[in-house]
């Protein structure tokens, strides 16, 4: 009796496996390696858009792996390659150390697409890299600031964590323009992406009685902290206020601040790479070649005087 049962069970398993195999053949399998979605609103939106795109209805079979640690990500990549996924999508925690894995992937016929972050590896090892151009984001914001034609520019510049890609790009644009146009940067400090620190930085400038009329904060949280300090001192801000507020990342709540005219400008850091990745996979599957490996996403900047309710809903993260 037991023997029969064992045989039946074994047969069932074989059929189940065959079933799996059949499922695999008509779906594209993707292994997605991403940073922890709890990291930031940006990452949460990024993860959400990937999950919405790579569904069974869209013809994909996706597995996800999250880690903020490079070595764990590399181990997961190795596992995905052994599992034989068709595509490996990577948002690397760190730029170094990926060479061997990418070579293994190439040998195994797994196609690699990088998103959000580039890595230091030969471009022949991956199909495409879909990234934001932080310097361009900064430039857009600075161009907007220039177009405001203020009679004088006294800027409090609150930077992100020093050396991060976002900080370097967004600071670089402002530094260059300040030099070229003779803008006065009254304070330049790192808030390390934190609202608390930004509040203290702005408070210190207020305490020193240094006049200022622009706050350029490299993310929304720091802009919020800066505004908290202004409110405490009764300094008006936003459209028609004494101080212009510039933030980045387009969080939904930040865009609402724009809509309420409390802030002036918010630069987007586009987390919606999923569509771009989908396009590339479709192209590769259709046998087309990808001409340009580095794909820079379109990113918007919103002005409080022109933003609409729809913008908040469509682009807020």
């Amino acid at each position: 009796m037991k023997k029969y049962l064992a045989i039946i069970l074994a047969l069932a398993m074989v059929f189940a496996l065959a079933g799996c195999g059949a499922g695999k053949s008509d779906k594209i399998t993707v292994g997605i390696i991403n940073n922890d979605p709890n990291e930031s609103g940006y990452r949460a939106a990024n993860d959400r858009s990937l999950k919405e795109m790579f569904t069974e209805e869209n013809g994909y079979e996706a597995s996800f792996f999250y880690s903020l640690k490079n070595d764990e990500q590399i181990a997961a990549a190795q596992k995905f390659i052994t599992d034989g996924v068709d595509y490996l999508l990577i948002s690397a925690a760190d730029t170094a150390g990926w060479d061997t894995v990418l070579k293994d992937a190439q040998k195994a016929g797994t196609k690699v697409i990088l998103f959000d972050r580039t890595i230091d590896a030969d471009p022949s090892l991956y199909e495409a890299s879909i990234v934001s151009d932080m310097a361009k984001e900064g430039q857009q914001a600075v161009d907007w600031l220039k177009s405001q034609n203020l009679s004088e520019y006294n800027i409090i510049h609150i930077q992100g964590v020093m050396g991060s890609a976002a900080q370097r790009g967004r600071s670089g644009a402002l530094d260059d323009e300040a030099k070229a146009s003779g803008w006065n940067i009254v304070a330049q400090q790192t808030g390390e992406w934190s609202a608390d620190n930004a509040q203290q930085i702005v408070q210190a400038v207020i305490d020193a009685k240094t006049p200022f009329n622009v706050i350029y904060a490299e993310n929304d949280d720091m802009a919020k902290g800066a505004v908290a300090a202004l409110d405490k001192a009764g300094i008006t801000h936003g459209v028609g206020g004494e101080v212009l507020i510039i933030g980045f990342d387009c969080n939904k709540w930040a865009l609402t601040e724009l809509l309420n005219q409390n802030w002036n400008y918010d630069g987007q850091c586009n987390p919606f790479q999923a569509e771009y990745i989908n396009d590339i996979i479709k192209k590769i599957e259709a046998g087309e070649t990808i001409s340009e490996k580095t794909i820079i996403m379109n990113e918007k900047g919103f002005d409080a005087t022109t933003i609409t309710e729809d913008d908040v809903n469509n682009y807020g993260i």
Binding site: N38, E39, S40, E192, W193, S194, A195, D196, Q199, D221, K224, G225, A228, W253
Partner: peptide, 10 residues
């Protein structure tokens, strides 16, 4: 202080 929270940096 700012009536909100940012989990990663607060």
């Amino acid at each position: 202080r700012i009536s909100t929270i940012t989990y990663s940096v607060i």
